[in-house]
Amino acid sequence: MAKSSSTDAVTLIRSLRSAYAATPTNLKIIDLYVVFAIATALIQVVYMGIVGSFPFNSFLSGLLSCVGTAVLAVCLRIQVNKENKEFKDLAPERAFADFVLCNLVLHLVIMNFLG
């Protein structure tokens, strides 16, 4: 059981890697960006666990800025992904413009909430 699952895992990882290698570069950039945002968020959660949640608004805004960024990037990734049939009518430029707008709003709110 353990053996088969581990071999399965290996083949899975291998196939994942190969599948992912086929992803276009721009999607890879987005993925990198998402990973960056999630990593920042995790760091903050750990930090909060260490020093306590006193400036709670700052923590919230810091965390949510990362989560928000990640979520928006995922949305963008969904929209610009060529394989995604649902959005083939949506021009990538339009998607990106929406994405920029969302980010601007997000960061405006974050700045408001941070202090």
């Binding site: 709670f56 608004n57 919230l60 805004s61 949510l64 989560v67 928000g68 979520v71 928006l72 995922v74 949305c75 969904i78 929209q79 995604n84 649902e86 959005f87 969302c102 709003v105 997000l106 709110v109 974050i110 408001n112 909430f113």
Partner: peptide, 26 residues
């Protein structure tokens, strides 16, 4: 995917914006 786009940003934005209203706050 549309469901994701409709929901996930709403939660993040909504929580942030709601927290901005003093009466709701944290």
């Amino acid at each position: 995917s549309r469901l994701y786009i409709a929901y996930a940003p709403l939660v993040v934005f909504g929580t942030l914006l709601a927290a901005l209203v003093p009466v709701v706050g944290f």
